[in-house]
Nucleic acid binder design. Structure first.
Lengths: 279, 279
DNA sequence: ATGCAGCGATACCTGAGCGACATCGATCGA
DNA sequence: TCGATCGATGTCGCTCAGGTATCGCTGCAT
């Protein structure tokens, strides 16, 4: 099995249409048909059921699609990382959800900068749920994740810190003066439905709250009295004047971890992790 | 970058010798030289420093070696799993360290067997530290691991159970009648140095205890009064007559988890996991 | 019922590149 | 200084990737 064959198969499996897949691959349709036929012959497995009107995946095809996507990501990552490693002055891409881990991030970058042979660290500000993909296809080398929100499946991690959560409310709200609060009190506020974040697929869960994509949007909506949110303490420091943070007693603690692909061999990654765990 | 090129590069990077690598790949040496040269040209990166007497890896080459091995494993896994998925009656390979999780394993297999459309489960009895590799190159589909001993990096997991640990002693030993014991008491026994297991590389750590590879060896040595061991409770049930198990109060608890590769799409794997978590 | 449009498979051709063999040039040790 | 060893290079045959033209099947519209 070759990468080219896998690329072709994944394209067809996604399009379920030889013509469209060929256009996407920028080749003609006949070589595509032949390549897939040969792949099937070599594996001894039928991957696609085709009539002249419809193409469908077999069960084996679904398995190969899933495994194949992972392999193609890994190949793209290998190419990127190999080229990075050859640079005279290495660069390191650190993926962080925008607006989070502010102080920790600053301390980490400061501490790492003084390391001998420190690489240039590029920050890749990403949206929630993107980390995984960025690390897997080599667009990022390291990421800061927040448990239990982010998944660490397929990654090596080290715990950096654990913190409580706070509810962000309009300063004018009745509860904003409280020194602490409980989950149930926040989630039950009928006048302030909880904001909804996009899920892993990029679509929003059902619910009454506002749909938000970033902290600026969110804070604006909270200030307007349209929504509220429960989030880690550190993200609630240095708030706008018209917002208040109230510690939520029984919210699950949030753990910030540093994560990297397990087979990472970049010295810069190892250094950064060492610095991070010593903070 | 193609799989063939990656296979060639990994072979050379491991042998650090074009001739030997070519023999291992069962091709002549010249095409190998040319293939690597072209790979380097395409990546725009020097992977190997070569003189006519010595070949060494560059830093970029070391990165590609590491990433490349992972990719080759993934490709082998994809081929195996695709072919498995095409079988009329699917098979499922469950990797377990020999001698562990006895009762849990029996219950799991019994419960799964009654599932509608249950696959045939093949047990792959392996040695410690092999799980990871078996799952990654597709020789196994699921594994039972024991935290904190085994690494779950790169795998999805579900916790099945947690148990304490016991010290296994000769029945004749002075401590064997105790109802409980402490770590320090066991590790400090001068007459019974702790047995040594092979590490991830297959070599043994330094120490006075006996070198063992499996439970039969181990139990025999304990019965002979040559060593002792601390291990999970469940592995210490149904002991030989001449051995005794004493709970170790302050030993870290052992968690048994079921683990699988994150991109797994086999229905049989999903079924088995569901059954396991409901036990 | 028939003709047409859309789709995947097949036939055939050209050129790139893989792999084999022979050989070169450099380097190290005797 | 000579020979052995090792990676690079030149050359050749052949496989196979990719292109164009076309076939055969199927569903749909008239």
């Amino acid at each position: 099995m070759e990468i080219r064959e896998l690329r072709y198969f994944v394209a067809i499996a996604e399009e379920l249409h030889f013509g469209k897949a060929a256009r996407r691959l920028e080749i003609a349709q006949p070589p595509l048909s032949r390549t897939i036929a040969r792949l099937e012959r070599q594996l001894g497995v039928t991957l696609l059921e085709r009539t002249s009107r419809k193409v469908t995946l077999t069960e084996a095809g679904a398995v190969l699609l899933s495994e194949g996507r992972a392999i193609l990501s890994a190949v793209a990552a290998a190419e990127r990382r190999t080229q990075q490693a050859a640079q005279r002055r290495p660069r390191l891409v650190l993926a962080v959800k925008s607006g989070t881990a502010g102080e920790l991030l600053a301390k980490l970058l400061d501490a790492y900068r003084t390391e001998p042979g420190a690489a240039t660290v590029d920050l890749l500000l990403c949206e929630a749920h993107q980390h995984q993909k960025l690390l897997q296809d080599g667009q990022a080398d390291v990421a800061l994740l927040h448990l239990p929100f982010d998944s660490t499946v397929g990654l090596d991690t080290e715990t950096l810190c654990t913190e409580g959560q706070v509810a962000i409310l309009p300063s004018s709200h009745a509860l904003s003066g409280r020194s602490q609060i409980r989950m149930a009190e926040v989630t039950a506020l009928p006048d302030l439905p909880m904001a909804r974040w996009p899920g892993p697929g990029g679509s929003y869960p059902e619910g009454p709250g506002a749909e938000v994509r970033n902290l600026t949007q969110l804070f604006q909506l909270i200030a307007l009295g349209r929504t509220t949110v429960i989030m880690p303490e550190s993200a609630g420091t240095d708030l706008r004047r018209d917002l208040a943070a109230v510690p939520v007693l029984d919210a699950p603690p949030v753990t910030t971890v540093i994560a990297w692909p397990p087979q990472s061999r970049l010295r810069a990654v190892a250094d950064l992790i060492r610095v991070a765990t010593r903070l």
